[in-house]
Structures are given as C-alpha cells and as structure tokens.
Simulated scan of single mutants.
Amino acid sequence: MLDTDIAIIGGGTMGLATATALANRTTRRVRVFDAARPPHTEASHHGHSRLVRVAYGEGRAYVPLAQEALCGWQRLNQAADAPVFIPTGILNIGAHDSPFLAEVETSARSFDLRTESLNHADITQRWPGWSLNTSFRGCFEPQGGVVLTERLFQYWRSVIANSANITAIDNTPITSISRRHERFVLRSLAGDQWQAGQILVAAGRANRALLRPLGIELPIQRVRKVFGWFDHTPEYDAARWPGFNYCGPAGDYYGFPAIDGHGVKIGRHDGGQHIEDETTPGDFGSHPSDLTDLRRLIDRHMPGVGELQRGAVCEYLRTPDEHFIIDEPIDGLFIAAGFSGHGFKFAPAIGDRLRDWMCSHAPPASFQPFNLGRF
C-alpha cells in the first residue's frame, strides 16, 4: 500500500486550487487523483471561460470571498506565462425591480465597490450589441472579467509538475474511501491502494458515492445545463464587449465576449433538466429545448449574434439553498462540493483557505455558512 500525507480526490477546479496553494505552504506529500486528465469535459471546468465578479447578486455575504478571489486571479495573471484573467468588466442587466440586480447594487454599496448604474439607453449606447427597452437597467462592474480555463489548468498543472512534493495521478478513478486506525485508505478502480492522513474530496459528481459509505449524505442534485458559441458582428469582441449576467423575461443568462477565435458564448443559468445519479446528461441537441433556450435571449436582445457554431452541455451540482458545501465532517476528511453553478470564480480563495485549514486544523470562520450540518 502506497502512503501519502494528503490525498486530493478530484483534480478539477477546487482540487487543483488547493493543491497549488499547498505547493507554496507545506513540504508534506500531496497526491491529486483524477478519473481522467484535467481539463476534460466530464467536469464543471470545461467550456473555455468563466466569469469573475465581486458585486454579488447571490448574496452580499459572498463579497469578501470574491474580493480575495479577484486578488488571486490577478496574482495568477502575473505568475502564468499567458494571461488567465481578462478584465473585460461585467455588465449585470435586469428589470427595474430585479431582486438579483438589487442585491448586486446593495453588495456594492455595503463594501464600497466601484460600479456604475446605467439605464437602458446608457447600455445600448456604450454596447450597441444590446437591444433593450425602457423596462431594463444595468449595473456595470469594471473590475470583473473572464478566466480562460484551459490556460488556467495548464498553469496549475505546471506548478504541480515543478513541485517537489505534489504529484498528479491522472486516469485513476478512486472508487472507495475507508478508515484504518487514524488514516484513510483509498482504493482505485484498478485495485491500487493508498493511505493518507488527510483527504480532500472534491470529485464533483462522484462525491456522493464516495462519501455515502462513510455515513455522509450530500444533498446535491445534478442539473443539466446548456451553453453555446455563436457567430457575431465585431461589436461582440472582447475589446468592446463585457461579460454579462441577464435576469429578465427571457430567463436568467450569462455570457462572454468573443475571445481567442471563439464565438460569443451564451449559457442559461435557470431551467435545465434534473439528472438521476446513474444517467448521463446527453449531448447538446439531445433535448428539444437546447438551442431554443439559448436563442430566446439572442432573438430578443442581441441582434448582432448569428448562427450557432457549437453547443455544449455541463452540469450544476446544486444544493437545496444553492450555497456551497465546504466542511470537515470527520477529522481529517474535507469536502468541497455543491458549487451550484457559481463556485468557479472563488477558486483561488477557497484553495488558499482550505490549505490553511488543512495545515492549521483551524476552520476559517468564513466557511461556517457552508457547513454540511445546515441541512
């Protein structure tokens, strides 16, 4: 049986954020296991890009974590060979009475964040790619932007490759975790075994099956979501167009400017289809509403966006309250799960705080709202 000090199950966003944070803090041996070789399409990090914002419509309690994460993305930009974060700004659009937009503005005021309140004419004049009537308004956050996920993973994996104490073990699905005295035993699909003093379980959709035999039940629902890249006119290029969130009659959407030859990317945040544990989400187009869900926003509000270039499917692993689960339910066993479609942007901060928790054995007070015991 092979031995390590820390085992991280899941080499995706939170697993690698924590592993690379540990590379700068500890000399303990760390092994990062993944069922494939990240980045890949079986995890929540695929799709080329993610939004980063700080004025937070999901609740102002997230703002300190978002501020810390933004600093982390800016540091990564300085460390990586190519930029991983592009400060396009983020435009939040909604009806005048939108609760999401109201919370964005309240969080900005509460933490003295720099934002601009805009009416529909301000928006369409600055970004002519929008077509909006008088029922809409917006809040622009200039410090927000876009993370390029493939570049990010390339950098993170280079950090691990150059680390003396951290090893990525790819194409190795972990199928079980058990306790043996004061340590944890991991078994792979191939029958190999490792033992570790601490474990971080951050394996996405595999989390529930891994933790259930230990008596830990995660209240997480898999939800199928779609997004796609589209042809466009030049005003949607990254030099002219921000990332955006839209909450209006068409639904709840997010989007990205055209970057690195990719088209305009648009995804739907609400809706979707529930997925049972043993089923696969199916390819884009396998559900009748896949394209029409995306075109609903385009046809109403984005006249310069044309035909679909390609579509894709992802999953939200959603908790009942749509807040995260970050906890240590058994001494030495840490969980990072249920990020509910809005966790990626916090990765540098979550990785740093999990590192500190694992090294100091002192849980950060900021993670208390994410305790599994709230369910």
Rank of each mutant, 00 (worst) to 15 (best):
L2M: 14
D3S: 14
T4Q: 03
I8N: 08
I8F: 07
M14W: 10
T20M: 03
T20H: 05
T20I: 14
A23W: 04
R25Q: 15
V30L: 04
V30D: 08
V32A: 01
A35F: 08
P38D: 08
H46G: 08
H48S: 12
H48I: 10
R50T: 10
L51I: 15
A55V: 06
G59E: 11
Y62F: 15
A66Q: 02
A66W: 01
W73E: 12
Q74F: 07
N77Y: 05
A79D: 15
P83G: 02
A108I: 05
A108G: 05
F111A: 02
A121F: 02
P128C: 05
S131Q: 14
T149P: 12
R151W: 06
F153V: 03
V159W: 06
V159C: 12
T167H: 11
I169F: 01
T172R: 04
T175A: 09
T175Y: 03
T175D: 11
S176P: 06
R180F: 12
V185D: 02
L186G: 10
S188C: 05
L189P: 03
A190K: 12
G191W: 07
Q198C: 01
Q198S: 13
I199F: 02
V201F: 06
V201R: 02
N207C: 13
R212A: 15
L214K: 00
L214E: 10
L214P: 12
E217G: 05
I220S: 01
W229S: 05
Y236V: 08
D260L: 06
R268Y: 00
Q273K: 11
Q273M: 10
I275H: 00
G282T: 00
G282R: 01
D293H: 06
D293L: 02
D299I: 02
D299M: 07
R300E: 14
R300M: 13
V305R: 07
E307Q: 14
Q309F: 00
G311W: 08
G311K: 03
E315L: 15
P320E: 11
L333V: 10
A336I: 02
A337D: 15
A337Y: 07
H342F: 00
K345A: 08
A349N: 10
A349Y: 09
D352M: 02
R355K: 13
A362S: 13
P363H: 03
P364C: 05
P369A: 06
G373D: 14
G373S: 15
R374T: 11
F375K: 01
